[in-house]
Amino acid sequence: MKKYLSLMLLLASIHAHATPIRIASDIWCPYICENHQGYIVELTQRAFEIQNQKVEFITIPYKRALVELQRNNIDAVLALTPSAIAANKFVSADVVFGYNSNDFYTLVDSQESFNHISDLNFTQQAAVVSGYDYGIELDAWLNAHPNSYFASGSDPLAMNIIRLVKGRHSVIIDNKSVIEYTASQLNLSQQLRYAGTIGKPVPLYVGFSQQNQANAVMLANGIKLLKDNGEYQSIMNKYKLLPEVGYDKAHYKRLHKFLPALN
């Protein structure tokens, strides 16, 4: 009986590791890029692989990813803030994968600056990505102003940048590294200007459903193993600087279809 029980436990363990963990996110490069690139993607993948656990990444819009995780159709979502995890009753591995900030970009000839919520009262229109968590104060301001623009779709940030260049918005809000990367892919970096940051940076986690707490523990263990063997720092070093324009050719090719809209 004891041997039979041990065999069953072994088979269950093998089956669990044979079934890929399904992790979803939208593209948020250089954190989360296409073709399984981006440092959060690589760290997560290697943290599981080093423990012989397969991972499957799925690219879907952020808002949909949260819904699919709530429905247990996937196992985890990358780059969630503490408030997003709490609001959706997810769990995390308690491992910080970086920090997000609300950074403001205008056209290069603008004189606007943004350091406080009240600064937004003097701008024409602010554009953000639908479903993202911008913090209590900024979320409240955006929802209280009907003129706020919430972009959605497969490349919402790219569209916000293009709309900014076309004069549809006066300012766009997102993470500085992501805005600058996406603008470089569109060859529009020279037309944008950093105009300030509101609020403090917030940590980013990988969020799991309540049924996947064991996977959250496994992720934390895997990150520790990567730090111990030096692989963690090696991956981080790859993303120390923003990629050049040609870094993610697949993403650039897909974004390039939007460029005629500028004419």
Rank of each mutant, 00 (worst) to 15 (best):
N212L: 01
M1R: 11
R168E: 14
H17E: 12
S177I: 03
L192M: 08
Y31P: 01
D94E: 13
N143W: 10
Y149L: 14
S83I: 11
R193A: 05
Y232T: 06
D75P: 04
K227C: 03
H15P: 00
L226G: 05
L107G: 02
Y239R: 04
L219P: 10
A214E: 14
T59M: 11
Y239T: 04
S83C: 00
A12L: 13
A261F: 13
N175F: 06
K176N: 11
K257A: 14
L138D: 03
E112K: 13
S209R: 10
V108H: 15
I21S: 12
Q233P: 01
G230Q: 02
V129M: 09
T106P: 08
N160H: 03
P20R: 01
S184E: 13
Q210H: 09
M236K: 15
K89S: 13
A76G: 07
S13Y: 12
Q210F: 01
Y194I: 04
I173C: 08
P30Q: 07
K249C: 04
L69R: 10
H145M: 04
V91F: 01
L188C: 05
P30N: 11
G153P: 09
H15C: 12
S113I: 12
G38I: 09
N102P: 00
L43S: 06
Q51T: 09
Y252T: 15
L5W: 14
L10R: 02
Q191R: 15
P82Q: 04
F104A: 01
K89L: 09
S6V: 14
A18C: 07
D174I: 00
L241H: 12
A93I: 02
Q124V: 02
L226A: 00
V128A: 10
Q37N: 14
E56W: 06
Q213H: 13
L9D: 00
T81I: 08
K257M: 09
S6W: 12
A144P: 02
L225Q: 15
N100L: 07
F97G: 03
A84N: 05
I173T: 03
K240E: 12
V41D: 02
A12K: 00
V55F: 13
L225I: 11
S130Y: 14
D75N: 13
S101C: 01
D228S: 12
L11K: 01
